[in-house]
């Protein structure tokens, strides 16, 4: 076992000098820099670009949250017990007589088929919303193949974009593809804004004539949901209930920030007018104006949520 210890002080040793043992200052002399190499060396290359190339994406793990488990349990109980109940009932009816049995089976099968088709439409509606996310992600990461496929799917579902399909197929870069889609998207946004103005007029009028603030809220909510669905169908999406909820969620944050300014505007309008009659009138008018402005904003954020190109 050798008692040799590496020197404690740092030092620089030119490469070519290293292998051959040669007189070195003793470690106690401290660190020093010795550079003798004459030729400039190329920069280090770690082949980083090759080292980080994307591999097959890992399948994201799914976690069953508390609410998810509860909903799953309820669905299993409701669906499973109903199915068992229905099967037993059909069997009982067959025991009573063939005609009763076939009639009951027909009723059950018809009901299940309608239920299934409804659920299938919901899932498809939700899938179209997810397709928007897929397209945006592809544009953001510069994945031309996926972006092109999503753009083609979108162009097939939007009447205004149908003539673009050959050009989309020939696009050579993501930037070119984005430039191709931009004018059509601008047209769709203009139409969404027009829909927003119509909804704004209607909610202003309804707020002015409605007898109670509670009814205002209901009317506004119904008109808002309808507006979101109209804007979505403009962009080729046919959201069912689940799809509408997903779309509404996306608009929630923007709507929340608008609400904060609404409160301030409303308070200011009320504070400025001290006359009771004026206050009453202006208060209602301000509420109507706020509702109208919310509709305009809702149309804008809904259109942004449905765009297949990333915003900005």
């Amino acid at each position: 076992m050798s008692d040799w210890q590496p020197p404690r002080g740092p030092r620089i040793i030119p490469e070519e000098e290293a292998p051959a043992p040669m007189p070195e200052p003793p470690p106690s002399a401290g660190p020093k820099v010795i550079i003798e190499e004459d030729r400039p060396a190329p920069r280090l290359d770690f082949q980083w670009e090759q080292a980080v190339v994307p591999v097959a994406p890992t399948r994201p793990s799914v976690r069953w949250s508390g609410i998810g488990r509860a909903i799953g349990g309820l669905a299993l109980l409701g669906g499973g017990l109903a199915a068992l109940d229905a099967a037993n009932f059909v069997a009982d009816q067959f025991a009573r007589g063939a005609m009763q049995g076939w009639a009951t089976l027909g009723v059950v099968a018809g009901g299940v088929a309608l239920l299934g088709s409804g659920l299938w439409r919901e899932v498809r509606g939700l899938a179209t919303i997810r397709a928007v996310d897929r397209a945006r992600a592809a544009f953001a990461r510069g994945d031309l193949a996926v972006a092109k496929a999503e753009a083609l799917r979108w162009a097939a579902s939007v009447q205004e974009a149908a003539p673009l399909q050959p050009a989309i197929r020939d696009a050579r870069s993501v930037e070119e593809l984005a430039a191709l889609l931009q004018p059509t998207l601008a047209t769709l946004e203009a139409r969404a804004a027009a829909m927003g103005r119509t909804a704004a007029m209607q909610s202003f009028a309804m707020t002015a004539i409605s007898p109670s603030p509670g009814l205002d809220v209901l009317v506004f909510a119904w008109r808002g949901v309808r507006l979101v669905r109209q804007v979505a169908s403009l962009h080729g999406l046919r959201p069912g209930l689940a799809g509408t909820v997903a779309l509404l969620r996306r608009t929630l944050l923007d709507a929340a920030t608008v609400a904060a300014t609404d409160v301030a505007v409303d308070a200011a309008a009320r504070a400025l007018l001290s006359n009771r009659l004026l206050e009453q009138f202006a208060g209602e008018a301000a509420a109507g104006a706020v509702a109208a402005r919310r509709m305009l904003r809702l149309a804008k954020v809904a259109a942004e949520a449905c765009r297949i190109l990333p915003p900005g």
Partner: peptide, 12 residues
């Protein structure tokens, strides 16, 4: 500083 390749022993 001079684009030369060098080994550095940083000490213990």
């Amino acid at each position: 500083s001079n684009r030369r390749s060098a080994k550095v022993y940083p000490g213990e």
